[in-house]
Nucleic acid binder design. Structure first.
Lengths: 343, 343
DNA sequence: TAAAAAAATGCAAACGTTTGTATTATTATA
DNA sequence: TATAATAATACAAACGTTTGCATTTTTTTA
């Protein structure tokens, strides 16, 4: 091992060429204030010396990091990954990188992540609140400090005060259940997620509304709110649910793709036929429903687009810093019922 | 809108308390060089003024960002997400954040991402090379600059020169195919991925080795190397494959979970029974194989652990900067054949 | 060809920390 | 109670850029 190799900096180029740091900096920026011949000289020397600008120093000087912080409740949920893909796509097209953190479904982690983002590493924040998130002071504090933030999914509109993007959960569910009803289904089960989560509340509401509208009896035993936070346990919950049921339903509306698939698996294993005996609908449509046999009818959520939209709102905020007239924007994305073999 | 709210900095606290910036800085660090009563005074004032340290300034001063850059070929592959989860877990336990970039299966993007990481934003890099990656000068250049880097998956050992982690692809495939052979299967098909990718080459090698060892005839028509980079087209490729086959194989070894599932779907749709007519094995075991009916036998890859291990190697490098004695480490992780209904 | 105008470059402060060394205040020692 | 030892604090440089303004060089104009 010889000497520790040192990073080349502007100063090194400047010294080598006997010019000032300022000129080197401007030359690399192709600033017309520096002579073309000098620009070329600097560019050439920079290349030959293997110069790489220091992003940190740039950020300190400019006050911009070009990083967007993203906080999602969990990684192992295709929906969130897909949204992140959308965010990433839009962000990169606009010269931002994204830094993803998982709150692991914990309000405390969400708060910590948010606070760590207040340390100036990111220019703006995108957040999808956990089901535990009831108080919004941590988010308001971000807003008060003037840090751009956009929320998505699982939002309690009343409290937020920040731009946000969501899908029409209630309408989507309503449509799906109405579709089942119009197919003549009478015993329609509902399998949802954690009751505390707004999205699941809305999806449940859609179910109830449809059932009521058409005067279909609602049976408690046909309603399940899964509350396991871990994928591993979802299966057990669904097994338990079917063990308790007196008569098999003729249709099941489920609130995620995974619930739908687990439900289909369980039903098939118990010897029922899909869709002859039971129809099943999933929510999300992130690829698996199409592969399963029989393929699963799903409410298709525009997850990627949601990510792009969220990022767009954030980048807008970043481009118009402390805009007095900025009216908080709420965007609701449409869903679509994709019909397949399970109905 | 009143005045633009300014961030509180050390100087503000210092001025307010009539002490020096240095003392404030040390007080917040709980440096014993500052009197306890002063520490308390500073801490209290910092809190009341809502002070948040500036991460960028810290990084510039300390030369450390505590960020690890991760480059994966694509987001929409559960394997990579799972590895990232593992990386993230280990990283956070050691006070690092991760910044993920996708190379979108393109060598050019991979190079660009790597270069952007040379700008000092990250302390170290984790990279999984694309199938297109044949020349390794971009990686060597990183190593030469003394930036810690660890590779995983899809590595051509000879060229690398960096720490890396992989799984025993050839052995895993060999075992799986051997298992099929021992079950008495004679017409065993192989469905792999892009031929240029080392992991798929190894998995193909395992297949061939097992077939040869037991003198099972190998038919070209039973071998498919999918080369679509997009999930959407994988299905079509597999359909095409089955359209061409003269006699259905009695077992199929596939190189990813998704190929396995698509294969099962196709077979079932064509009226064959699994496992009676055809056995199927997948590779990865990232959750879906268990849900499908029939459930799919899989080679289980320790993806999460892989991520943790990769991160561990990197953090080790970060902790022993330019260690003369650092011998490049190659770690091979074991897989396991998880038996389910498809065999 | 000297003065004015324009072009090119340089100086130095700023971004917000950390940290080695110098200085000042306090306590202990004789 | 002067002095030495120690504790507490302050100063200032450094991290690598950017950028407003000052200065120097070159070109234009009369």
């Amino acid at each position: 091992m010889t000497l520790k190799k040192k990073r080349i900096k502007l100063e090194d180029i400047a010294r080598k060429l006997n010019i000032s740091i300022a000129t080197v900096s401007r030359a690399l920026d192709k600033n017309p204030r520096v002579k073309l011949s000098t620009q070329e000289k600097v560019l050439k020397e920079a290349k030959s010396m293997g110069y790489m600008p220091n992003q940190i120093a740039k950020s300190l000087s400019s006050g911009k990091t070009n990083i967007i912080g993203v906080i999602i409740p969990r990684y192992d949920e295709p929906f969130f990954i897909e949204v992140c893909r959308g965010i990433d796509r839009y962000a990169r097209e606009h010269n931002y990188k994204i830094l993803i953190s998982s709150s692991r479904n914990s309000f405390e982690f969400e708060r910590e992540n948010l606070i760590s983002f207040e340390r100036g590493l990111v220019d703006g924040i995108i957040l999808s609140p956990t089901h535990e998130t009831e108080t919004f002071t941590h988010i308001k504090s971000i807003i008060k400090k003037g840090i751009p933030i956009v929320l998505f999914d699982n939002i309690r509109e009343e409290v937020s005060g920040a731009d946000h993007v969501l899908i029409e959960d209630d309408k989507a569910s309503f449509d799906a259940v109405e579709f089942l009803i119009k197919k003549g289904k009478k015993r329609i089960a509902f399998i949802g997620g954690i009751k505390e989560k707004k999205v699941f509340q809305d999806r449940f509401k859609g179910y109830l509304d449809a059932m009521k509208k058409y005067n279909i009896p609602i049976y408690d035993e046909l309603i399940l709110h899964c509350d396991s936070l871990d994928r591993e346990f979802e299966d057990a919950e669904i097994q338990g649910f079917f063990n308790e049921i007196s008569t098999i339903p003729d249709a099941i509306f489920t609130c995620t793709d995974n619930y739908g698939l687990l439900t289909m698996k369980t039903i098939l294993k118990r010897g029922y036929k899909i869709p002859e005996d039971v129809c099943v609908i999933g929510f999300g449509d992130l690829g698996l429903g199409e592969v399963f046999v029989p393929s699963m009818t799903c409410i298709a959520q525009p997850s990627f687009e949601m990510g792009q939209k969220v990022a767009e709102l954030l980048v807008d905020q970043l481009n118009e810093p402390n805009d007095v007239n900025h009216r908080k924007k709420v965007i609701k994305l449409k869903t679509e019922l994709v019909l397949r073999d399970s109905t």
